[in-house]
Design a protein around this nucleic acid. Structure first.
Lengths: 156, 156
DNA sequence: CTGGCTATCCTTAGTCT
DNA sequence: TAGACTAAGGATAGCCA
């Protein structure tokens, strides 16, 4: 149970790396999720899975929807909980608020998407490149690396 | 100093929200950064700044480069630190490893970019929409919301 | 508003199942 | 292999400068 201060460096042991990846990815996604709720914003994390060349995107289209819903439901409901039998004006104001919040959320999601587009414009990719090509290449590189590791193990 | 368990819900107080945003964003970026180093992968977080309609992307082109460098420098250097005066074969193997690691990193960055492209293809945006348009709209919505909040304050 | 401080809460490395 | 457990380490809410 003696956990030392972890050195932030590449984990060579495959199993430890896998475990750490799984745990920490979960933690990051949770934190991103919390921030979106606490601050009523859109946010996402895009992280590669080093073990099956999958890429994990959060929020996915489904997750993003959930965030917006949660935002709309919790942000102003709590605030107005103590006036659920409020006056006509209060009800109207509440409705307007909800509408504006929704507008704002939609707007911000668009902003984020545009930002991603702008970010991607700084990256240049060969036109004829596909994800499957890359996965194949990655597999080959991985195999080479394993071979080298074995050679090293033999030498040391 | 009595910090209670925080309820994950939209923070109504502007200053508290701002402080929380600043602190937690920093924490998330750190965690993402650590994960990329620990597991030798690419990862990024895209988070809106709720206060100036800016969108913070990590890694930015500069940050991404740093990650790759750090990855290349730390992942295998530590492992081979105890053989820095190694044999000819060991030196060659080390060089091959570095090359392959670099290839792999490049490959993974391309994968991520492609993944982002695929993600964006699920989003449809009006063609004639610009980030400045959205910022203008956002500002207007913000002003409306403030007005409503003032009205509510007057009523309550 | 931003950054530093610290008690408290939260995350996670190591371990077993 | 992934989940559960638990203590050490890390993040951060609230407060002050």
């Amino acid at each position: 149970m003696t956990r030392k201060k972890v050195k932030v460096a590449y984990i060579n042991d495959v199993n430890a790396r896998k475990a750490t990846f799984r745990k920490r990815k979960k933690g990051i996604m949770k934190k991103v999720n919390e921030l979106t709720i606490l601050c009523g914003i859109q946010g996402c994390a895009i992280i590669q899975n080093p073990f099956d060349s999958q890429i994990e995107v959060w929020p996915n289209p489904k997750g993003a929807k959930k965030v917006v819903e949660r935002y709309l439901n919790t942000s102003k409901v709590d605030e107005t909980k103590n006036m659920n039998q409020g006056s006509f004006f209060e009800q109207r104001i509440y409705k307007s608020q909800s509408k504006l919040n929704k507008l704002r959320s939609e707007n911000r999601e668009k902003e984020m998407t545009l930002a991603m587009l702008e970010y991607l414009q700084t990256k240049k990719l060969p036109e004829n490149l596909s994800l499957t090509d890359l996965k194949e290449m990655d597999k080959m590189v991985e195999e080479y690396m394993k071979e080298i590791e074995n050679m090293m193990a033999t030498l040391c």
